[in-house]
């Protein structure tokens, strides 16, 4: 896996709590409801935290499954992620979309979980095997797509899924992964080129 994947232990600095006012553009993209809930949670309203959990748990669980490839492990990661998130209150400042904030948290929790499991099973504890699990739906077209996506280098695969499955903008991907925007564009470009040139997936680009 690439360097960006290995460096997942870092905190999302852009999203961290600082006294600097956030750029108005980034904050403007944050759903109003999340801003209100975070504000209430900072004032000690636990029901606001519960609502934040309910709003984002499915996204976190889905990400966790993508990173761990195991449903039980995904539940552990879901729990660790939200315990960490709740621990940031009071004093948490939402400077970008909550999904952007949560992405590296889930990723790091999954990596940490993998390290723990690696003590029992010899796997590379520094890497995640993104999208390793078998997809829910079958059918040759989807299975073929899954196989081709799995062949993409991990950093490219991650960017593709963030962009097209999680609907991150490229700037949000750069922010969540703490990599330059140019790197995101480059990875996506190479990934899409690979999909376009592959015999099994070029049909998507011919339509």
């Amino acid at each position: 896996m690439g360097d960006a994947m290995v460096s997942g232990a870092r905190a999302p600095s852009v999203l961290s709590m600082t006294s600097d006012p956030p750029p108005s553009g980034a904050r403007a993209n944050i759903p109003r409801v999340d801003l209100d809930l975070v504000d209430r949670a900072n004032r000690g309203d636990q029901s606001a935290l519960s609502q934040l959990y309910e709003r984002h748990r499915d996204y976190v669980a889905r990400l966790a499954l993508r990173f761990t490839g195991d449903r039980e492990d995904a539940m552990d990661v879901l729990q660790e992620t939200f315990i960490y998130f709740f621990g940031r209150f009071p004093g948490f400042e939402l400077r970008a979309k909550l999904t952007t904030f949560l992405y590296p948290v889930v990723r790091n929790c999954a990596l940490s979980h993998r390290r723990k499991k690696a003590r029992a099973n010899p796997v590379d504890p520094q890497s995640l095997d993104i999208a390793a699990h078998a997809p829910n739906e079958t059918g040759w077209e989807l299975e073929t797509l899954h196989a081709v996506v799995r062949l993409l280098p991990e950093p490219q695969r991650e960017v593709v899924l963030m962009r097209f499955v999680d609907d991150f903008s490229m700037a949000e991907i750069a922010e969540a992964l703490e990599i330059p925007l140019g790197t995101v564009k480059s990875r996506l470009h190479h990934a899409l080129n690979a999909l376009r040139e592959d015999e099994n997936t070029k049909r998507y680009f011919d339509r």
Binding site: R71, M75, E137, K185, H189, F205
Partner: peptide, 25 residues
């Protein structure tokens, strides 16, 4: 590629593949 777009059919299939509806106990 510069704006990171892809064909809609590809995006749709990727979502079908990886947007698992994971039931949380």
């Amino acid at each position: 590629f510069d704006s990171g777009e892809a064909p809609e059919a590809l995006i749709s299939d990727l979502k079908r593949l990886y947007q698992d509806d994971l039931r949380i106990p």
